[in-house]
């Protein structure tokens, strides 16, 4: 009887191991198949476009400004690597973007701004990843652009197709400079969420045509400082 129970337990243990292995394999397989856009390495200087695009904003009294188009994406903050402990620390942020629409979304992925914008053309877009910093103690909040990707159909591989319900992982670097004054004064904890938005440009000049509404992660990471 005792031996039988032991055999049964071993059998159960084996089943658990198999199930866990299958789960891990499944997760790993998903990780492997999920495309990763790595924006942590700055592009060479000669590919960086530091020109500021033009824009015009205003209107007639009583008429609200256009709210911006909706992005068919959901963003989640996956993790923050090398959690910062002080001002000046750089850290890496990983986010997931999921296409929540029924049609494919083409995500700008190029860091070569010069290549994307050097010629006039249709469909030139900039996709911005921002961090939303919030001090939970007093509710103050600030948003800062941390990384930018650009894309246009005429530049090969500058757009990544995301099929409906599919995801991409995006990595980018950031720092605490946007909240330097909070940290110097009194902040002991900061919550970080991620945000993304897109800007489209006119065909014939480097001028903003339209902007999306930002999407913001529902989840946040909290960082405490001593």
């Amino acid at each position: 009887m005792h031996l039988m129970r032991l055999a049964h337990n071993i059998h159960g243990l084996g089943l658990h191991v198999v199930l866990m292995a299958a789960l891990v394999a499944s997760v790993l397989a998903q990780e492997v198949t999920t495309p990763v856009i790595d924006l942590t390495v700055p592009p060479p200087r000669e590919q960086q476009l530091s020109a500021v695009p033009g824009a015009s904003i205003g209107g007639i009294g009583g008429q609200p400004l256009p709210r911006g188009y909706l992005l068919p994406l959901k963003i989640d903050l996956t993790s923050i690597y090398r959690r910062p402990t002080k001002l000046g620390d750089k850290f890496t942020v990983e986010v997931r973007l999921r296409n929540t629409s029924a049609s494919a979304f083409f995500l700008p992925t190029s860091q070569n701004g010069v290549a994307v914008f050097q010629h006039d053309g249709k469909g030139r877009r900039t996709f911005m990843f921002s961090l939303v910093f919030e001090d939970p103690r007093n509710g103050r909040q600030t948003t800062s652009i941390a990384a930018v990707a650009m894309g246009v159909e005429t530049v090969k591989d500058s757009l990544l197709r995301i099929d409906p319900s599919k995801e991409v992982r995006v990595l980018f670097n950031a720092d605490l400079a946007p909240v330097a004054d909070w940290l110097e004064r009194d902040a002991s904890e900061i919550q970080i969420r991620v945000s993304a938005s897109e800007t489209t440009f006119e065909d014939r000049r480097y001028f903003v045509k339209s902007e999306s509404q930002p999407i913001v992660s529902g989840n946040a990471e909290s960082i405490r400082f001593k």
């Binding site: 530091s50 020109a51 695009p53 824009a55 904003i57 009294g61 609200p64 400004l65 652009i145």
Partner: peptide, 25 residues
Amino acid sequence: DLNAFANAARSGLNSRYAQIFAATS
């Protein structure tokens, strides 16, 4: 990354333009 730098400048300008219009309205 100067791409991000330039776009942050653009974003900051836009938010100020929008705020001025909102205040005027």
